[in-house]
Design a protein around this nucleic acid. Sequence first.
DNA 1: TTACTATTTCATAAAATATTGAAATACTGA
DNA 2: TCAGTATTTCAATATTTTATGAAATAGTAA
Lengths: 128, 128
Amino acid sequence: MNTNRDDAIPLTLPLPPEVEESLCRCGGIAGLVEQLPGDATLERESGVHRALADPLRLKILAMLAVQPLCVCVIKAVLGIADSKLSYHLSVLKKVGLIVGEAQGNWIIYRLTADGETWARRILSDAAN
Amino acid sequence: MNTNRDDAIPLTLPLPPEVEESLCRCGGIAGLVEQLPGDATLERESGVHRALADPLRLKILAMLAVQPLCVCVIKAVLGIADSKLSYHLSVLKKVGLIVGEAQGNWIIYRLTADGETWARRILSDAAN
DNA sequence: TTACTATTTCATAAAATATTGAAATACTGA
DNA sequence: TCAGTATTTCAATATTTTATGAAATAGTAA
């Protein structure tokens, strides 16, 4: 096993002067690497974006930002098959942007705190 | 052609009382629909998230948030094949999060204004 | 119990994305 | 010109995500 970072990252690359200079100032490649989020963080964060990477799912989020809704209302607005909607809801649920609570015959979905944060961002981006 | 929204969206669904009441207050299903972003907006927004839906690409963004970098430095840090890196850079470039400028033998990539906004969000989320 | 409704799950098919290695492009410096 | 380097492009393949329709689950109400 080799934990010496220096052989994974050659320090003596020929670089464009502009890059080399500012790279030196920030501690070289090692200094740069230190500033990056860890792998677990990147995985988690990219997972949220993957869930947001679909127009239908963003629309669901926007709807739930107005108020909690049961599946049948969401379906009526989107006009898609039950199983398709269920799939997309499960994607949003899995990353913790929404939760569903059974209420008699229905399941009412609402945004989580995370979901609200993202919905706000999305809607304010959309306004531009 | 049919532009009458009423037959796409049945107004007389049996609903959980909680949902029905607040749905009425916000103008029913029609009122709800009015508050949603348009399709073009949702497409564009989801496209950005799709570009951010990969840990490697988030890492690239985080690196460029430190300073503009040439491909070879990014490659040294990530330790992946040239063509793979080139593919991921093209994904970020296509949605306008980064731009590359040729500088002699090198291409130096930097964040766009949008890229900076997203990098800030990602890094501040990562801090939690 | 029965019939009915809302929603999810499952298997499979289709579509979109990502990886790989080889070849192409474009620049530099001798 | 030539050789060398940095980066991209391409075609083939592998992987992941999404769509679809049928069946299952779980609740309600008669």
